[in-house]
């Protein structure tokens, strides 16, 4: 009896398991299809002609693929595609580099350098986490316009560098950094700067990469702040350009979808090649809201 029971139970369990697994897999496949539809539409509409899209019935894929949509997009004098891609790239790269520099130094100071005011400053950083940055865009715009940074890279980049949340993440990370490494460096005669740059930073590659990927994606996809600051067409980021044509009266649908597909390409590449860091970054940012 006793010898039989486990196998009987094990058998029953494996049958229900198998059914549950099969059902789970089926649901997963359906969800996969649903989640991929928007990407499918991006490509289908981007490579179609207007006639294909507006035709009655549904063409699964354009009968003759309009590769020239891509060329037209960059040749259209009405659409500042090239300049807005360039603006987005410059803004995202500099925002990422600046955020990493400013926030890692501050996070390190708060985690590792004793100072009587350290706690007060940390609370001043935490207080900013209660109010989402987007809510204070009116005040921030007031300062930026007073500084004369409207439609200027400085206005797009500099106010975005001082993220209390990123400082918080760096502080938490540095608190768990092995102290022995730093102490060894200090004994070898390195000061705080030397320890940070030669020991701490080179040994924190994964964490820094994770924060970098997250910051880059956020910056590339940012919309409200660029919409507020980049008022001249020459300063538009790619999101502002896309938005302008979504809300425009006359829309060239295939061209707009092609533009959207081009705009997500850099992030899809980041996604494919740096997914490890991205997943890690998400897990880090989510550990503590």
């Amino acid at each position: 009896m006793d010898a039989h029971q486990p196998t009987a139970v094990g058998y029953r369990r494996s049958v229900t398991d198998r059914i549950a697994n099969g059902a789970g897999l089926a649901v997963l496949l359906v969800m996969t299809l649903l989640f991929l539809i928007p990407f499918y539409l991006l490509i289908r509409n981007g490579l179609a002609s207007t006639k294909d899209i507006t035709a009655p019935g549904w063409t699964l894929f354009p009968r003759d693929v309009q590769w020239h949509n891509l060329v037209d997009l960059f040749n259209d004098p009405e659409v500042p595609m090239l300049s807005s891609l360039r603006n987005s790239a410059i803004v995202a790269v500099l925002t990422t580099a600046g955020t990493l520099l400013v926030c890692s130094l501050a996070g390190y100071a708060l985690a590792r350098i004793n100072h009587p005011h350290s706690n007060k400053i940390f609370y001043a950083v935490l207080a900013t986490l209660m109010i989402p940055g987007a809510v204070t865009f009116v005040p921030s715009f007031v300062i930026v316009s007073w500084l004369g940074w409207v439609s200027d890279y400085r206005g797009l980049i500099i106010p975005a560098l001082f993220s209390g949340f990123t400082v918080f993440l760096f502080r938490q990370y540095f608190l768990s950094f092995p102290k022995e490494l730093e102490e060894a460096a200090r004994i070898d005669g390195l000061g705080y700067g030397g320890t940070f740059w030669r020991i701490v930073v080179p040994n924190s590659g994964n964490f820094i990469a994770a924060i970098a990927v997250i910051t880059f994606i956020q910056s590339w996809n940012a919309f409200l702040w660029p919409l507020v600051v980049a008022q001249d067409e020459s300063a538009w980021t790619v999101q502002v350009t896309l938005s302008t044509f979504i809300t425009a009266q006359t829309i060239n649908i295939p061209q707009l979808f092609m533009a959207a597909a081009v705009s997500i390409l850099p992030l899809v590449l980041v996604f494919v090649f740096l997914q490890r860091y991205l997943v890690q970054g998400v897990a880090q940012t989510g550990l503590k809201g």
């Binding site: 969800m31 996969t32 989640f35 991929l36 539809i37 928007p38 990407f39 539409l41 991006l42 509409n45 899209i53 507006t54 035709a55 009655p56 994606i217 590339w220 996809n221 919309f223 999101q239 896309l242 938005s243 979504i246 829309i251 649908i253 707009l256 979808f257 959207a260 705009s263 997500i264 992030l267 899809v268 980041v270 996604f271 997914q275 991205l278 997943v279 998400v282």
Partner: peptide, 28 residues
């Protein structure tokens, strides 16, 4: 990866797809 991929999309791009294709009010 499939479920995570939309994270790479901006709200602007999603709005574009939703407004002009999926939930376009016209017949097509």
């Amino acid at each position: 990866s499939v479920f995570f991929l939309p994270t790479a999309c901006s709200y602007v791009v999603a709005s574009l797809i939703w407004k002009l294709s999926i939930f376009n009010g016209v017949r097509f």
